[in-house]
Structure formats: C-alpha cells, structure tokens
C-alpha cells in the first residue's frame, strides 16, 4: 500500500476515452477519497458522466469505445484483462439520472441482485431488504406495500428505491449520475439528505448539473470542460476561490 495521508479508494491515471475516433476524455487523473462525497460538474457534453460510467465499466456496453490509462480500485486496475466487470459492478454501485426500477414488485426489485449474487437464506434476504430500505429512508413509506409494483411509486420514491437497491449489494462506492435531475424539489431535498447520511459508510461520486447541489453536499469538486479536468479541489475552495479562471467563469454563470 502506498503511504499517503489520505485513503483514496479510486484513482484514475491519465485516462483517455474514445467513442470511435472521437476523444471524449483526455488525460484524466483524479483521486477519490474514501467515505467522502465528490461532485463532478461542468457543462453538458464535458465528459463528466462518461468518466462516471468508466468507473464501473458501464461504458463496456457501448460498441466501438476504447479506454487508455489506468483506473485503480483499491490499487487494482479495473480494466486489466483478468478483471470481471460483473464483480466490479457489485462493489461499485450506480444510480441513474432517471429512476429505473424494474417492472417488478418493490420487494423483488430489492432482492433481484442479492439473490443472483448467491444469498439464498430468506431470513437474511428479508433483513437485507429492511436494512437497505431503512438506509434509503424509504422503509416507512413502503413497508406495507412491498408486494406492489415498483412502477406505482412516485418518482422520488422510485429513485430512493434505486438507491436502496444499490445499497443492498453492500457496495464500497456509489456512483450517482445526476440522480435528482428528474425529481421535484422536495424529493431532491430528501435525496440530498440521504447522501449526507450515506457518506459515513460509502464513498459517493456524484455528477450534477446543479452547482448549488455540488456546493451543498460534496467535500470535493471536479470541474470538467471539453473532456478535461480543469480543476479538482476541495468544494469550498472551488466555490469561493478557484485556482482557474475557467472554473470561476463557470460557477459564476458566465458560460455553460
């Protein structure tokens, strides 16, 4: 283990990413600290979501893409040939922009992945469902309707279900791709509150369009522009006294 004063759970080293011939990311080097919230901000198409999806190998699903450089998760390159992306995704969960529950019951949404990961004991499963839903502050709302279809929940509830579903896999890291952009302000506040409590146990990396949100919930913020990291700093520093002129222009609303 390298001796550093901080415990970095994910480190990217000089990552380039291509869609065919188009270079979507270039030279991304970032360290994500354990049990902290890191926000990625920047205008649309700047590559922040692309980076997020590289961290759990979701971009594998897109034909004709190529990754260069290294992404180390607990010191291991997740793009090494012997690494199974399925295992990586079990340990690095993800929440998407639009809530995407399966058209199954709430209960089955929760148990789907844990069962496939090999948890068979029904007592253990039930406990896991309850614990995860409680962590996601959804338990009280759904405990009596677990057999109902997840599609009947409101948008905000669906998104918390998706978070709970990810938590049930007991991941180390949770990636969130603009998780509140499809939600109303009240649901957004609930999710932000939730993120704040979750960071005690989880590392959270969140992509957001909303700069106030980044300022409210994160310890670190990375500002992306045209596929590059312009500035990666403590959130407070970024929003009060950024090192780069471009960052200042963006957060003060002069472009983007």
């Amino acid at each position: 283990m390298v001796t550093v004063e901080k415990d970095f759970i994910i480190r990217t080293k000089n990552v380039d990413f291509f869609y065919g011939a188009f270079r979507a990311l270039s030279g991304i080097t970032m360290n994500f600290e354990k049990n902290k919230v890191t926000a990625l901000i920047g205008p649309s198409g700047c590559g922040k979501s692309t980076l997020l999806r590289l961290l759990n190998r979701m971009n594998d699903l897109i034909d004709g893409t190529r990754v260069e450089g290294e992404i180390l998760f607990e010191g291991r390159n997740i793009y090494a040939p012997e690494v199974d992306p399925v295992e990586i995704r079990q340990r690095i969960g993800m929440v998407f922009q639009k809530p995407n529950p399966f058209p199954k019951s709430i209960f089955n949404n929760m148990t789907y992945a844990p069962k496939l990961a090999g948890i068979r004991d029904s007592g253990e499963i039930n406990a896991l469902v309850e614990e995860s839903l409680k962590q996601a502050v959804l338990w009280d709302e759904v405990k009596d309707i677990l057999a109902k279809s997840a599609m009947t929940l409101s948008g905000g509830q669906q998104q918390r279900l998706c978070i709970a579903r990810a938590l049930a896999m007991k991941p180390d890291v949770i990636l969130m791709d603009e998780p509140t952009s499809a939600l109303d302000p009240i649901s957004t506040a609930k999710i932000e509150e939730l993120i704040d409590t979750l960071k005690k146990h989880y590392t959270i990396i969140i992509v957001t369009h909303n700069m106030q949100q980044a300022a409210r919930i994160s310890e670190y913020t990375g500002f992306f522009y045209l596929g590059k990291v312009i500035e990666f700093n403590g959130t407070e520093k970024i929003f009060t006294n950024p090192d780069m002129k471009q960052t200042e222009d963006y957060i003060t609303g002069r472009f983007g």
Binding site: M58, V86, E87, G93, A113
Partner: peptide, 27 residues
C-alpha cells in the same frame, strides 16, 4: 425493452446472462 433496464441490472453487478434471462427476456 428499454436500455435502462439492462443498465440497472448490470450496474447492480448482475452478469450479462442473468440480465438477459431475468430482466430482458421476461419484459
């Protein structure tokens, strides 16, 4: 079948085959 179903399942660390068999095919 919406792509989001596949993404949701894969992001939970479920294998491609299980994603197809348990999510995509039933839908």
């Amino acid at each position: 079948v919406p792509q989001t179903f596949r993404e949701a399942s894969l992001a939970l660390g479920v294998s491609k085959w299980n994603t197809i068999f348990r999510i995509v095919l039933p839908s």
